[in-house]
Structures are given as C-alpha cells and as structure tokens.
Amino acid sequence: MKELVVISGKGGTGKTSLTASFAALAGSSVIADCDVDAANLHLVMEPETFRHEEFFSGHEAVIRTQDCIKCGRCQALCRFEAIRFEPEGRIFSVDPYNCEGCGVCVDHCPVAAIDFPERRSGTWSLSKTPYGTMAHAKLDPAGENSGQLVSLVRKEAKERAREEGKSLVITDGPPGIGCPVIASVTGASLVLIVTEPTLSGLHDMERVLQLSAHFRVPALVSVNKWDLNQEMTVRIEEKCLEYNVKSAGRVRYDKGVTQAMVKGRPAVLTDIPAATDIRAVWSEVEKALTTLKKEER
C-alpha cells in the first residue's frame, strides 16, 4: 500500500481542491483528511458517515477548590503558565487551554487536591464517498494534540485500505511545518507540495522541502495559480531542483476552481481550463507512485 500526502507549507494554496480532484481521478482509493484543525475535504466529497467516535487525548489537571490549601506550589512548578490565581476569590485554578497534561502539579500537590481526568479533544469519523472511504476528524475548539489526531486518522485510513484491498491512501495534510505536519508525513510514500507563486509561497515551500528531506520522504511540487507570477513560478521550480525535487506540473489561475467548490464538487469533474492541468499533475504523481520502491506498512 502506498500513501500520498498533499501538503503546502502556506495555507490556502489550493491543497484541498487538488486533493479532492486526485481522489476523483484515482477512482478507488482511501482518502484521509489530516487537516484536523480546519477540515474541508468533506465539503466536496459528499460523505455519508458510518462511524463516528470521540477522541480523547491525554489528561488535564483540575484543582478541587474545596481541598486546595492555596500554597501555590502548582503555580511555581508549572512550566506552561497554566495555573491561574484569581485574587478576588483567592482561588487557584487551571487554565485548560494552557494545560499540557504533564501531571507535575498533580504529583507535587502536598494535599493531593488536583484531579487528572481524561481530556476529550475532538471526534473522528469514517464516511462513504463516491471516490472511496474517507477518514476525517474534527478537533474541538482550542483542542489539544492535533498531531495525535492526525496519526489516528492516518492509521484508520490505512486500516480501511488494508480491509478493502485498496493500494493507495490519499491524504490531505495540514498547513505549516509543526507537530500535525510531522505527524502526517513521517513514513509516507510520497508528498506532493502544492504552493503558489508568491514570496510567502516560496518561503514556506522551502521549509516544507527541508522537512520532507529531514524525514526522508520523497517529494514532488506543483505550483498552483502559476500564471499570477511567472517569474516566481520559475524561481520556485528552480529552488525545488536544489533539493532534487521535480515539478509535477503547474495549474493555472482559474476562478472555476472556486466555483466548483461552491457547487461542492471536485474541480476536475467540472469543465474548466484548470481541470486539464490537474489531470496532467495527477498523471505525473501516479507515475512517481508506481516507480517508488518503498512500500508503506
């Protein structure tokens, strides 16, 4: 089984629109939406959810006010600035958004007045779509540990692929280069970096190139809306060659892509000029996938 992960560095480069089109072109794969912070893929995939689960991640500290002796030890030891002191009520409390779940305050409270319950951080689902089964998730507002939820979505997608005998998982990755991105690219067969011909696009792509080199995942690049700035497109493709990363082709600027999204359909299934470009990119990606030696476990 192989796994293609579509990432971008910078957000809003058209990563999800391309992923949806690839899923439609692949016809029969398992799809994973790993942008758990702001999942969008389902908006163009007509999903029918058949499994829905809660996601718990680690624990969070909760101070039992009635047992607290207000010694302030927890506040002194916490490295995450998560213990608040409210002067009016003279109460110590835990700010759940800053709490890292390390348990230091729990272990060191002299009167054991801190509870450590499991924390619900989101939900995940499996859905039927016209293009294959899709694993997707939603992090709760201000939820913690999106990296772990990403790993869970990938794992579920791979398990489905194994069960259904599918040979490809297509993953829509999160933006950035931090924990959730690392969680979505480690051990993948191939990443496709979708960028745009802007200074930010160039800069962010370079950071993603370094990341995929760091984790030794082969990469391809595609410049979306390339005709907005031809010179920058060339610069981006040249930069990629420095990292030994080839272009899988360019996609032109086409308002039809947004219109397809408004209609809730993958862009490649509509009759727009950019659809030709997306098909060409996909055939390059497919070629790269078949020549890869390493099989995904």
Binding site: D37, G143, P175, G176
Partner: peptide, 13 residues
Amino acid sequence: PPGTACPMVAAVG
C-alpha cells in the same frame, strides 16, 4: 497562526 489548535490559542488567548 491559522487553525484552532494550541498555536492559535497561544496567539489570541
């Protein structure tokens, strides 16, 4: 930073 997870909360909290 974009999103709704810990980095965004650290920035807008």
